[in-house]
Design a protein around this nucleic acid. Structure first.
Lengths: 158, 158
DNA sequence: TCTGAAACAGTATTTTG
DNA sequence: CAAAATACTGTTTCAGA
């Protein structure tokens, strides 16, 4: 799947910067016992490979005014309308994740709203008009934890 | 809820650094027409307020060997066992999000696995023994998009 | 092809007002 | 919050393994 080109150093770098995007590369270099230039080159390589897709700050959603986090699964009224629906979902800033799924639903999204009232408003005025059917909403009462993917080197089959 | 103490500059800073954790603060400063020291102080303030909770690199899960992304909702066999279950879930590195929810389930988690076979393995050997009941699993066939919370200044009621 | 030492440009952070 | 000063980092270059 393309990840076997990564060696131990790559994984070590990923593990360090995944958990802290602002860690100085020189500090990463010291922990890995290589030069800063090496880290710089590796990070560039990982970016070029599409493994690193950018960085972001993690914010407390409640503290910036989004008290309600919800997940929604739904079917489409007109299957085959996928791409249109996706485009419409993209226009709704409160929708922060969008997945194609198998099983219970056609699609699955995560969204934030200022409060439960605002969530209902988004569902009624923005989501329903798109053409969804059999929607089910799940409200997260509290996010207990959230973290990065486990980064470990896997069996290298050279 | 505590977010009314933020002014326009705070929101502008948040918007810029949320989308790119490695943007130089001096560049943020230029875009905001303030000094670098101001940005530094604001970021520190936002961190102290708990609004900024760290930073991370975004990685392509497929490219580091996690081809399967799943969501699972479930009830607990012994309600009241919440904290024990949470502790057990924390020990499973593949579980990347954990929520208390209302409605369909007691809890809801997001997890990654190397492939579908690995997912089943995790469910059977790690999750089921914890004491979950009526689990439902939803497999994300593809993550279409993923982005940050919408950051906008809301009505200031000073 | 990859590494690491050196050099430069630029940034983070502190101090001061 | 701005300006200035210092210490440090990001990035490029280049020689060598």
């Amino acid at each position: 799947m393309g990840h076997h080109q990564l060696d131990e150093l790559d994984y070590k770098i990923l593990k360090l910067i995944a958990a802290n995007a602002r860690i100085p590369f020189l500090e990463v270099a010291r922990e890995c016992n290589v030069s800063g230039a090496a880290i710089h080159q590796r990070v560039q390589k990982l970016t070029n490979l599409g493994i690193l897709k950018g960085s972001e700050f993690i914010m407390d959603s409640n503290k910036i005014g989004f008290e309600t986090c919800a997940y929604m699964g739904f079917y489409l009224k007109n299957p085959g309308d996928f791409s249109h629906v996706v485009e419409e979902l993209r226009k709704i800033p409160e929708v922060v994740e969008c997945h194609f799924t198998t099983g219970q639903y056609d699609m699955f999204i995560k969204l934030f709203a200022r409060n439960n009232q605002h969530l209902l408003e988004i569902i009624h005025t923005k989501l329903q008009p798109i053409g969804l059917s059999r929607t089910e909403t799940l409200i997260s009462f509290r996010e207990i934890f959230r973290r990065q993917l486990p980064i470990e080197e896997v069996e290298n089959m050279d």
